[in-house]
């Protein structure tokens, strides 16, 4: 009897293992044959994000409050140092503001003279990060704003200091943000002051690399990297970071934004480029140019 029971138990174990093998084969077939950008999976993914957005919202709140408390405690400790630093920064910003106003007047004048199209005005949508999907395999975030707030796929996303990524899928009340560090992120950039164009590609590490640099391009360590605006969806000139070189001499970008402590993000929406207003002076200039 005991032997029969043992045999029966063994058979049951084998059958569970057999089912596990069948499941393993099924999952492997899915992995091999279902494309990552499959439309059905993409829709399902966004529906799930929307459905779980309230849950994420609730479970991320204690963490957010803890981070706020931690930051507050750190600030209290360094209060005097922070005050001095802010004073200096404020002074610097005032000086830059004067320069910025002057540059803006000049820029508007040049734009008029050259009859350049008016750059689209930027519309910023603030959102809270409700889920951090960063792992060894993906680098994405979920924000608690979606189509209802005007978010669209491809829009640029910034933190407090610079670009962090772009929107890859949008639901009704949530959106997925692909970080610059993700392996599938490729953003056209401009390296100033040499105005060298390149592609900033993520490598699932903290330092995305610069690819497709022109031959004989001369870029210096510390050069500023900004968005090039190529493609139209990401506005030109959003700061990203500075160029650094690794031990092999390959350039990478030291990002301005700290990706480990992102609580709030800004989604930048651009409107369609409008032609310049028909001004008689501008028309004369255009005709002379011809």
């Amino acid at each position: 009897m005991a032997s029969f029971r043992s045999r029966k138990s063994e058979l049951r174990v084998l059958s569970v293992s057999g089912i596990a093998v069948i499941c393993l084969i099924f999952a492997a077939i899915c992995l091999i044959f279902v494309a990552r950008d499959d439309r059905v999976i993409g829709t399902l993914r966004q529906l799930m994000s929307d459905a779980f957005a309230p849950t994420y919202d609730v479970i991320s709140r204690p963490s957010l409050e803890l981070r706020k408390m931690r930051n507050a405690a750190t600030n209290l400790v360094d209060l005097q140092a922070s005050y001095t630093e802010l004073e200096q920064e404020n002074q610097k910003l005032r000086e830059q503001l004067v320069e910025l106003r002057r540059t803006r007047v000049l820029l508007d004048r040049y734009r008029e003279l050259l009859a350049l199209p008016v750059e689209p005005s930027l519309h910023v949508i603030s959102a809270r990060v409700i889920a951090d999907l960063q792992s060894p395999f993906v680098r994405t975030l979920v924000a608690n704003t979606g189509r209802m707030a005007g978010v669209q796929e491809g829009q640029a996303v910034t933190g407090g200091r610079g670009l962090i990524g772009r929107v890859v899928s949008v639901g009704r009340v949530s959106s997925r943000l692909l970080l610059l560090t993700d392996f599938n992120s490729h953003v056209p950039v401009l390296i100033s002051p040499s105005n060298t164009r390149a592609i900033l590609s993520g490598n699932n590490a903290d330092r995305p690399v610069l690819r497709f640099l022109p031959k004989n391009a001369r870029i210096e360590e510390g050069a500023q990297v900004v968005t090039s605006g190529k493609g139209g969806q990401v506005p030109i000139g959003i700061p990203i970071g500075v160029v650094r070189f690794d031990g092999n001499g390959s350039p990478y970008v030291d990002l301005l934004e700290d990706f480990h402590n992102l609580s709030y993000v800004r989604i930048i929406s651009t409107r369609a480029i409008e032609p310049p207003p028909s001004d008689p002076d501008t028309q004369i200039l255009t005709e002379r140019g011809r």
């Binding site: 393993l24 999952a27 992995l31 279902v34 990552r36 799930m48 999907l133 395999f137």
Partner: peptide
């Protein structure tokens, strides 16, 4: 896989394995 954005079947294979 759906929640994370990893290829469909990736965690399916791993967790079953």
């Amino acid at each position: 896989d759906i929640i994370d954005g990893t290829p469909f079947g990736f965690w399916g294979v791993l967790i079953t394995f």
